[in-house]
Design a protein around this nucleic acid. Sequence first.
DNA 1: ATAATTTATGTTATGTTATAACATTACAAT
DNA 2: ATTGTAATGTTATAACATAACATAAATTAT
Lengths: 152, 152
Amino acid sequence: MKSKSTSELKATIHKVEEICKSNKLGLTEIRRQVFEIIIKNNKPVKAYEILDKISNINNKPSHPPTVYRAIDFLIENGFVHKLNSINSFVGCFHPKAHKECYFLICKKCNIYQECCDDSLKDRISKTAIHNNFVISNTTLEIEGHCLDCSQK
Amino acid sequence: MKSKSTSELKATIHKVEEICKSNKLGLTEIRRQVFEIIIKNNKPVKAYEILDKISNINNKPSHPPTVYRAIDFLIENGFVHKLNSINSFVGCFHPKAHKECYFLICKKCNIYQECCDDSLKDRISKTAIHNNFVISNTTLEIEGHCLDCSQK
DNA sequence: ATAATTTATGTTATGTTATAACATTACAAT
DNA sequence: ATTGTAATGTTATAACATAACATAAATTAT
């Protein structure tokens, strides 16, 4: 899978800033740092990796709650997502555009891909309705191999 | 959501026994105990809950590896599934009938429902193909409220 | 039968992921 | 100035999971 371009990255960071500004969400220094660490990585990042990076950036040890709080903020506002199957976090490249987001995760190169297929969303929705079930959130994580890696 | 009947339960346990017998899989005492704990519960069970129950049953303390090994065996053979979004395990009521299994999990009553909808499976499959992606395993966990709980 | 091999379990320790609880700071509103 | 609120710092620990090595039990080969 290909990783994101610098311009996409910039645009996404900018969009998050805009969303925060217009919704009066405090995008504090730490929250911004954590977001940038996550979004700039094209692979899922673990909380304790973020912790190390934050500690390095600021030249002082940070603690788990600091990181988890920032992550919570970012998830709540749809700027990052958690991949439950691998206890890792990924940035969202179309923040606020959708609540749910599905993922393809390559086991080999570890690069992930967001995939917000409407027909898939519909299908899940129909399945829920068919079971008289009201969805509050959906975890869909597809693990496997991307084109590049399956060709190697 | 309604919980499973005793006869369904018996049938499932019997089926697992048969599968083990015909495939020469060692359904040892511990593995059987862990399986029964998981399948008899109509809610997802946590590993350390199983640990407590096993310790009680056998009147001696068990240790985490014992439980996790049994769980691994049961997952490998498709007798139980892990719900990554809540770090819990659930029994499978149609072992070996399918590799993938999707879940509806009620946040209120905590009862889960397996849902092996073929059209959903197809849709996921198509999404993967469309992204040139080869699936090895899929996590689909839909959290929300079941009919009973959303009416309350 | 018995030695060798494999499969499963016991045991200790530790690694990894996440949160509770309470103190402190920063900044805004009255 | 004082109170309120939102965010962060700090310590400790809870919750989830596995590594590594020892032992035992079952299987197979001789």
